[in-house]
Design a protein around this nucleic acid. Structure first.
Lengths: 192, 192
DNA sequence: ACGTTAGCAGACAGATCTGTCTACTATCAA
DNA sequence: TTGATAGTAGACAGATCTGTCTGCTAACGT
């Protein structure tokens, strides 16, 4: 029953506002106002706005990676099924209210290469790619690197186009295409 | 030998700066300064910054659509080959210096849904989707809508991930995956 | 009892951003 | 010649944004 700490309130508000409106479109004054925090407190926890942005991306990473992993596991235990099932997370995301695409792609569009914010987005995409690749190895894909790249292309495409029109059809097609690619990539070495 | 008009200089400068740094990151003062134009002239041609942004997107649309069509035609005349060949435009774009992903995806990340800028990005993606769909029909695909959606997902994925790391490998994989999807979509009705 | 830590409230500085306005110049057509 | 058109130069207003600073309050551990 302890009220959430100031830091937590700041992060909650930033998560909501940054994702909904974009990073540059939301000033620290607004975050301070809506989170009901003093300005000094804000700058104590986050010495610069960019520090908050990175913390925001850290949180998005946790949430989104969790959803991806959960969707994959739910489709398991066959790794090939997991590779297809992870696209259910995309479908769920598209249907969510206020969906505005991938927070990392959006953040990358607003940050210059080489900055901590931009680096954080690159790190996220690398993690996802590595995770998919591992599943590809488990699934016995002939070329796990290539398969992982193809699947993340589909995933990123679904996320990116979701920012333009959140058509659930796109997620369905992404999953269907993924199924085809996974089948093609595993049948060569692991055909029934 | 006539020097480019003020309007043209403004557009050239905006094209370069908006794409390289993002829309919100570039102020009108900078565009005015670097294009060597008077402030009154600027606001005469573009009453508001957003008007310039839309004009910028119009130009990007021309350029990028032209490259897509050229790449497709070069791979023709078989429509199925065109559907795969258009991905060469993605590979060329990735290799270009200063490549920073898709201007439309980036602009969408910086604009609120319902604004003229955001609408312009949606219109572009719709045009590309319709064009790919037409090629799919010509190629005799069983489900041209689905095929077009799948291929544009791959394309958008390549463009979006290009903003994070401009890996030419991604474009290669996108093309290979496209070839597989096109083959699968056309073989059912148009085999050998 | 006392110091430390966390937090609230809000003024302030300095930069930057969009957009307006005045005043002047050059070109070209009727 | 005169009037319209396109352009240059730059001051200015008003809003907004990031970040700093001063004061005050309350909880908690020693």
């Amino acid at each position: 029953m302890a009220p959430p700490s100031a830091r937590q309130r700041i992060l909650d508000t930033a998560f909501r506002l940054f994702y909904a409106h974009g990073i540059r479109a939301v000033g620290v004054d607004r975050i301070i106002g809506e989170s009901g925090v003093a300005k000094a407190t804000f700058y104590k926890h986050f010495p610069a706005k960019d520090d908050l942005v990175v913390a925001y991306l850290d949180r998005v990473d946790e949430v989104w990676s969790g959803q991806l992993h959960a969707a994959a596991e739910a489709a398991g235990p066959d790794p090939a099924d997991e590779l297809v099932g992870l696209f259910d997370a995309l479908a769920s995301a598209c249907r969510r209210d206020g969906y505005r695409g991938c927070a990392f792609i959006n953040a990358a569009a607003e940050s210059a290469p080489g900055t901590p914010v931009h680096d954080r987005t690159v790190a996220h995409k690398r993690e996802v790619l590595a995770w998919v690749r591992r599943l590809g190895v488990d699934a016995g894909a002939a070329d796990p690197d290539g398969l992982a790249r193809s699947l993340t292309l589909l995933l990123d495409g679904g996320l990116a186009s979701g920012a333009l029109d959140a058509d659930p059809e796109a997620a369905t097609r992404a999953k269907a295409s993924a199924a085809l690619l996974v089948a093609a990539a595993t049948s060569a070495t692991d055909n029934v």
